[in-house]
Design a protein around this nucleic acid. Structure first.
Length: 445
RNA sequence: CGGGGCGUGGCGCAGCUUGGUAGCGCGACGGUUUUGGGUACCGUAGGUCGUAGGUUCGAAUCCUAUCGCCCCGACCA
């Protein structure tokens, strides 16, 4: 993309009503625009990152054997009356009526609806296990939205629902989600720690939240700091192997890590003092096992091998997709701007032409752009007629992890400069070598 | 919902106390500057002062109502 043809409304000054760094940077980098309290438009740059995050979530869900579908944002109230949550959910649920005065609601989650789909089409244990998920906009009418997309009222969430014949199978689904989530967050450059949590309005007794450590987190967290060094990496996981999946979950949950809701002082004191840490975290996902809470209320049953009919065992599993942008920026930025992890960056590299209109510089930039494209890499080419300083400042602000700087001086020596946004380190390379280096860097992402 | 604060060009703000026909910086646009980390200078455009009503010869400014937004708290993916 040539910057002169793109839509990137960057702000030099910080909007006064943005308090935390991710919100400020998203506004300054032209990623979002607030339309109402807690409701945002996603401008092109923000939308690109959002789509990349969605894509990672999809890939890791499908890798775990989970099946995507799409449910509507608006739901009939009757479904929620069946589960009893129409009255229980309270003011957070946005309720509306259509022209026929039928009660509808803008879904804050989809347990009822997915259970309805399940009961209509599935009746036998032979159809299980089944895990369905979608990535859809949700609305929760928060009393006080804040922190930009971290705490919006409208937000994009991945929510998945497993259906299993018995408790053991459902717990395997729970574990499968935990492992899939670990890899999902790692691919986004995050260290998200699964912590034992409280279940809240979803219900159920087994639940973990995934927390990204950050000063601005909304939850206080207590943990053994050895958990932060654990990595799933690219190890091959057989998601059908219950023991293997459970062992991985054990590896990541045996060390103490809890939010303030479930904190246990006695257990925490057993952690060696040098590893005992208290901090704050941003919640980026949660998994629940809740058994037959909804299936019983809504009559979602299956016939088992011995011919009896039992309510299906369920759980639900969420990832705050839009919130993740905020969380990633909170975890990865500096005083100049955002630093995107390679896995979610809106463009793989930026190209800065130091002397627009110079035949050699223009030609080299065009060549780089095409060469990157040929290797499957996207570039944002700053071809504006601006001073070098302005171009660098924009690139630093929007946070592309790699930048190629092209100018007449370097070209006279046959080189361009490849700069790492995170470290600030530069190396001079021929244009061809710079493209090779980037292709090599991104093979791991 | 309780407490606090703010609505003035795209963004950040001044003006309001002591009513007199709206100003600054940034940005945008047009030039000059040819420039390797937000350059300098010249010029141009852009505002029913959140909205409604009231007081007044006259309201951004005073009064009333209303809408919106932000911050702290309780609550939350």
């Amino acid at each position: 993309m040539r910057l002169s043809r793109y839509f990137l409304p960057v702000l030099k000054e910080t909007p006064s009503d943005a308090q935390i760094v991710s919100h400020r940077l998203m506004l300054r980098a032209g990623m979002i625009r607030q339309q109402a309290a807690g409701i945002y438009s996603w401008l092109p740059l923000g939308y690109r990152v959002l789509r990349r995050i969605e894509a990672i979530v999809h890939q890791e869900q499908e890798r775990a054997g989970h099946i995507p579908l799409l449910m509507p944002t608006l739901q009939p109230a009757d479904l929620w009356r069946e589960s009893g949550r129409y009255d229980d959910y309270g003011q957070e649920m946005l309720r509306i009526q259509d022209r026929h005065k039928r009660d509808l609601l803008y879904g804050p989650t989809n347990e009822e609806m997915i259970t309805d789909i399940f009961r209509a089409h599935v009746g036998s244990y032979k159809d299980l296990p089944l895990t369905l998920y979608h990535i859809q906009w949700k609305f929760r009418d928060e009393i006080r939205p804040r922190f930009g997309v971290m705490r919006g009222r409208e937000f994009l969430m991945k929510d998945g629902y497993n259906f299993d014949v018995d408790r053991d199978a459902a717990l395997h689904a729970y574990n499968r989600h935990m492992v899939a989530y670990l890899r999902t967050y790692e691919r986004m450059g995050l260290t998200a720690i699964p912590m034992r949590a409280a279940s809240g309005p979803i219900g159920g007794d087994n639940t973990h939240e995934f927390l990204v450590l950050a000063q601005t987190g909304e939850s206080e967290v207590f943990y053994d700091d050895r958990v932060t060094g654990l990595k799933l990496g690219d190890r091959a996981v057989d998601f059908d192997n219950r023991t293997e999946v459970a062992d991985i979950c054990g590896e990541f949950t045996n060390l103490y890590a809890r939010t303030d809701e479930t904190h246990d002082t006695a257990l925490f004191d057993a952690v060696p003092e040098e590893h005992r840490k208290v901090g704050r975290g941003i919640e980026v996902g949660q998994i629940f096992y809740f058994g037959t809470k909804y299936s019983e209320a809504m009559g979602a049953t299956v016939v088992t091998a011995d011919g009896s009919r039992v309510p299906v065992e369920m759980g639900s599993h969420g990832i705050g997709v839009s919130r993740l942008l905020g969380a990633i920026i909170e975890a990865s930025h500096d005083e100049k701007g955002i630093i995107w992890p390679e896995g979610v960056t809106p463009f793989h590299a930026g190209i800065v032409n130091l002397k627009q209109g110079d035949a050699a510089a223009d030609g080299a930039c065009d060549g780089l752009y095409k060469a990157l494209e040929a290797r499957g890499l996207t570039a944002l080419y700053d071809d504006r007629d601006e001073r070098a300083g302005a171009k660098f400042a924009t690139m630093d602000l929007i946070g592309l992890p790699w930048r190629i700087t092209v100018g007449p001086r370097g070209l006279a020596k046959g080189v361009v400069e490849l700069t790492c946004r995170r470290t600030g380190e530069s190396e001079e390379l021929s244009p061809e070598a710079a493209v090779d280096r980037l292709a090599q860097i991104y093979t791991n992402w």
